[in-house]
Design a protein around this nucleic acid. Structure first.
Lengths: 332, 332
DNA sequence: CAAAGATCATGAATCGTTTCAAGCCACGCT
DNA sequence: AGCGTGGCTTGAAACGATTCATGATCTTTG
């Protein structure tokens, strides 16, 4: 099956290739009769524009790369949908990659995106050093960092997780819990660390001693890890009465396991989550949690990237910080 | 910033463009000294291959499109990871799209993939008619249908959901439940309908009358819908003692809401889910469910697509059917 | 020593599109 | 009649990589 190019279309419609291209890209320049003839030829032959050729010629591409940390966490997929929505309204396409938290895979993603000539990248960086950012930037790519602090030079959009941590632990303290625990994944610099910092600061402000807050670190932030966390938690003596989990998946696993062990939530132990994913509402005990504006996060990130990609000259880098908010349900 | 092309590299290394291309693609044809000089130039200039130009020239592309129904359901993301793993081992790249169950968006995805010149498509079709499949096929694309029956002409890989439905309801019947319910999303032809068919057939075989199984249809298959389903379920009179949910998310929402209403699972009502997502293990009541080989599903689909894409001539279309299996935990 | 290989390097042609200077034509105006 | 104008169309030159017939240089061999 021979591939149909603009050439065949031109032949069939009895016009030049230039005219076909005009029909495709600037239809108003073409006389109506001609336009219709060309459209017809396109339909009959089943012509599909070759995006590679188009990009090659144009230099730029209306495509953005998005590198997410994982698809397993609904938080990320919600962010992704926000980004996708923004791109669709502006006629951009997205190339999705997941780094799965691995530096090597992240590098592979970026290489792939660069070869694909995306005009910008939205990324939740795992092992991304300033050097690589600068490199991408030098090559003319718009770069937007998601949920990572930056010291200028790039656009970034993040949620104030220190505030989030304060809100979460603050809520427990307001309810007079005096022995608390923080359940988390690896404390790498970034969102998770910030939540910890916020929690610590809230504890300190409430006059709690160092030892009043136990931190349980797990390798992952999954429901399964939450389940394990519940077991470790129950071994603690004295038993904390308030638990702040670094994300909702952890919290859900933890609450479920506590219930199974006969520990009542919130009567005996209160739990606060983080993210406010859909499942938080439908959980066994509807989860009190800290809502992140996930959709907006994705949307704004994509919008910033598109703006920079479309007009790199007059673009000024912005660091957007969004605020989290407490959602009180039943678990605390 | 001028983009670095093979030309600049050639100049810098003091060789011709052809040689640089050889270093990139057939390094063994190039003398070691030259090769090293070129590699050095590539490094110094930060050259990145322009994939558009490459594809344009080569005609083919080592890229596969994957169109999934949704990113919100962990089931799909697990399938996706299986597919990605297979592609990575064979040096293929993936372009991800989600149709979100919308026919229009599905069409947009396919248009996008075709313009990107992918060499094959793995798809969970929503509104895909035979015509569109044939069209893609005519244009030389390898097509693999995921989780959809086909009458030859294309590769497909699916799970035997009729068997799955039978297993699920069969399990409830084996445990002597005589009033049962099937909770589901829209009964469109496909996996969901098949599960229903399986359930009905199991019921019939056990000699249950038509009215012994109530079917509750919801618009979505989310935990939130499961929550609603619980409310509707409790209105039923007589109350079913066994419930089969068309996926785990529904089941989880349903179980959680039942617990909240003080209904004991499995003591008063037994629940069987479908999919065996990670959350099934960590649920409030660990879920008895029907496991699908998700990873294998994705892996095999990608493998089939790559095989067809690499050697279209000698390729024979295959219809693979995988078997689901019951995983007994605590909910039933 | 001439001829035949072997080994590498070259550079022009090519992929399918966009872009743009140039051309054509019909029309109205002076 | 001559000229300008506006509306449409044309065709050739890019874009950056790959490919391949050709050539250059060096080795081997009878």
């Amino acid at each position: 099956m021979p591939r149909i190019s603009i050439r065949e279309v031109a032949m069939r419609a009895g016009v030049s290739v230039g005219t076909v291209s005009n029909v495709l890209n600037r239809p108003n320049l073409v006389a109506e009769a001609t336009r219709e003839r060309v459209q017809a030829a396109i339909g009959e032959l089943g012509f599909v524009r070759n995006e590679s050729a188009r990009q090659l010629r144009q230099g730029r591409s209306r495509t953005l790369g998005v590198v997410l940390e994982s698809m397993a966490n609904p938080y990320f997929t919600d962010v992704a949908r926000g980004a996708e929505a923004a791109m669709n309204t502006d006629g951009f396409d997205a190339l999705w990659c997941t780094s799965d938290g691995s530096v090597a895979k992240e590098r592979r993603c970026l290489d792939f995106l660069e070869e694909q000539h995306v005009s910008g990248v939205v990324i939740t960086p795992v092992g991304l050093d300033q050097g690589r950012v600068a490199e991408l930037h030098d090559r003319g790519l718009a770069v937007v960092l998601l949920d990572r602090r930056t010291q200028g030079g790039v656009c970034s959009i993040r949620v104030d997780h220190v505030a989030g941590g304060e809100i979460a632990l603050g809520h427990l303290l307001d309810r007079h819990h005096r022995r608390v625990a923080f359940v988390t994944g690896p404390l790498r610099p970034g969102p998770v660390q910030d939540r910890y910092t916020g929690a610590v600061s809230a504890a300190r402000r409430a006059g709690l001693g160092e030892s009043a807050m136990t931190t349980l670190v797990h390798r992952e932030m999954t429901p399964t890890a939450g389940k394990e966390a519940a077991r470790r938690l129950l071994d603690l003596d004295p038993l904390p009465t308030g638990v702040f989990c670094a994300n909702d998946l952890l919290a859900i696993g933890l609450v479920n396991e506590l219930l199974r062990k006969g520990v009542k939530v919130p009567a005996e132990i209160c739990v606060v989550g983080y993210d406010d994913i859909e499942l938080a509402t439908a959980a066994a005990v509807p989860l009190t949690t800290v809502r992140q504006p996930r959709h907006e996060l994705g949307w704004s990130a994509a919008t910033l990237a598109m703006a920079e990609a479309s007009a790199p000259e007059e673009h000024e880098h912005r660091q957007v910080v969004l605020s989290p908010a407490l959602v009180v349900r039943e678990s605390a």
